[in-house]
């Protein structure tokens, strides 16, 4: 059965069991590295992606629910040569150790910053409730998200995915 998925602005016809979680399609069919398998149980957040502007756990979402919806992964926030503001902020503040959890953190932050350009410290922490980090990079992750907010406001973008996810 073929399902049409829109990921980072491009549409793809996916030939897979409709019950397949989005995570496996992103990694296995589309060759994207950003979303990571962490638990498959919706507990750790390393597979977080954004669907229609909201952070969701891709390990829990069967692709049958995504027909006609916009999926954004960390690859959709910019490239290594032209990083987007969130990516710039994480690089600038060196907000990674092993880095495995970081794309999930960034996608949770992306959804938050779309909703609210200048979130409070509490709101940032709350947006990351389901995101686990084991290296203890938490302080830098928080700082990078604040910094990304600044970068976005400085660029006076109405939202971080302006012009990126189409």
């Amino acid at each position: 059965m073929t399902i049409s998925l829109t990921v980072n602005g491009s549409s793809h016809a996916i030939d897979a069991d409709p019950a397949t979680p989005l995570l496996y399609v992103l990694r296995d069919d589309l060759g994207l590295n950003g979303a990571k398998y962490g638990c498959g149980l919706g507990q750790c957040g390393s597979c977080t992606v954004v669907v229609d502007g909201e952070a969701v756990l891709s390990c829990m979402v069967p692709i049958m629910l995504l027909e006609g919806r916009e999926v954004t992964t960390v690859e959709g926030l910019g490239t290594i040569d032209e990083p987007g503001p969130l990516q710039q902020a994480f690089i600038e503040l060196q907000a990674a150790q092993c880095g495995y959890c970081i794309p999930g953190m960034m996608m949770s932050a992306h959804a938050l910053l779309r909703r609210k350009a200048q979130p409070s410290e509490e709101e940032i922490r709350e947006a990351l409730t389901t995101n686990l980090c084991r290296c203890g990079t938490h302080m830098r992750i928080l700082a990078a998200i604040r910094r990304a907010g600044e970068l976005m406001r400085a660029a006076s973008l109405p939202g971080p995915d302006e012009g990126r996810t189409g």
């Binding site: 919706g42 829990m60 629910l65």
Partner: peptide, 9 residues
Amino acid sequence: VMPAFRHIL
């Protein structure tokens, strides 16, 4: 722990 499905369903 159960994930929220409000942005999915």
